[in-house]
Amino acid sequence: MLSEVTVVIPTALRTFTEGEQQVVIEADTVGQALNQLEARYHGVLPRILSADGRLRPHVNLFVNETSTRASAGMDTLTPHGSVLSIIPAVAGG
């Protein structure tokens, strides 16, 4: 059975999620969670990953408080009850 993960959607991507601030998904890794998100909300994934499947340099993904860049990237595990936050760079001041 897959883990239940809460994906926190940044303001900039909520146009893809019909305004949802967070989405609960079943996945064991970050990669699975993002694919599930894309399956549910088409078009959101290219905003997070580049065409070659790598995390875009202006986006960070955090499982709880830890960056996936500091762990196993798309293979980072998403334990049951974890929170996957998508944090893109913003520049407003």
Binding site: A12, R47, V59, P88, A91
Partner: peptide
């Protein structure tokens, strides 16, 4: 270190 590059222009509307 946090954001290696800025987003593409089409992804970054201003305030």
């Amino acid at each position: 270190c946090l954001y290696a590059e800025p987003p593409p222009v089409e992804f970054s509307p201003s305030c």
